[in-house]
């Protein structure tokens, strides 16, 4: 009888270890994305790109898909204005808050999705200032016990001038790719085409409705 109870206890320990692992995975993924934000804020491009898997993808707006960690490093540098870092030049503000995570870890604990909200304060002293807002739907993968970003997909909703804010934005017409990437074509076309505010676009949800379990429009 004692042996049976002992076996039951062993099984319970194994099961609770697995449950605990899920909790730790959830925290590790949140930490990873927040660390990404804190590196980007301060111009630590290499540290930020080191958070990706070797074969990761990076996609922002309608700029197309950049594939592989090295290309991701290059595109992060280009989009921020081209300085090699670590650091920012005089007068550049590049604060990109990583907020409001909804993290879904796969049943096998080896991959995950994450939805995030970004609020950004951008600008160049003496020249311009902008508010930015958008949503991420990212993917993560565990490699050798370490969580990494395997796909970053940022859907900017707007980058609005400080003067007048989002109310003065006009609908984009035609191509609204980032001008910083004019001489830096992507490895693949955009996976999603959409237009930012004042047009409407709902970034698809990676997860079903938390209560009804149905897909959300």
């Amino acid at each position: 009888m004692s042996a049976e109870r002992q076996e039951r206890i062993e099984a319970r320990i194994a099961q609770l270890n697995a449950e605990m692992q899920k909790r730790e995975d959830y925290q590790a993924i949140i930490r990873l994305q927040r660390a990404y934000g804190f590196y980007i804020d301060k111009g630590y491009w290499r540290e930020a790109s080191d958070l990706f898997t070797e074969d990761a993808t990076y996609e922002q707006g309608v700029d197309g898909v950049f594939i592989g960690r090295e290309r991701i490093h290059q595109v992060i540098v280009k989009l921020s204005g081209g300085n090699p870092g670590p650091g920012l030049p005089f007068g550049q503000l590049y604060e990109r808050f990583q907020l409001q995570p909804v993290i879904t870890v796969s049943d096998d604990g080896q991959s995950a999705f994450g939805r995030w909200h970004e609020l950004a304060m951008l600008g160049q002293y003496g020249e311009h200032a902008e508010w930015g807002e958008g949503v991420y739907e990212n993917r993560y993968r565990k490699e050798g016990g370490v969580w990494k970003i395997s796909a970053l997909h940022y859907f900017p909703n707007f980058v609005a001038p400080y003067e007048g804010g989002w109310a003065v934005l006009k609908p984009v017409e035609g191509d609204w790719r980032s001008p910083e990437l004019a001489d830096f074509p992507p490895d693949a076309p955009p996976t999603v085409n959409y237009k930012p505010f004042p047009d409407q676009f709902t970034v698809p949800f990676h997860y079903p409705h938390p209560v009804t379990g149905k897909a959300v429009a």
Partner: peptide, 21 residues
């Protein structure tokens, strides 16, 4: 760094200035 385990280096000496970083 959560992935590499390395400490971040100090900033580029030109960070905060107008010299070419």
């Amino acid at each position: 760094n959560p992935v590499t385990g390395k400490e971040a280096p100090p900033p580029n000496p030109a960070a905060g200035g107008v010299a070419n970083m």
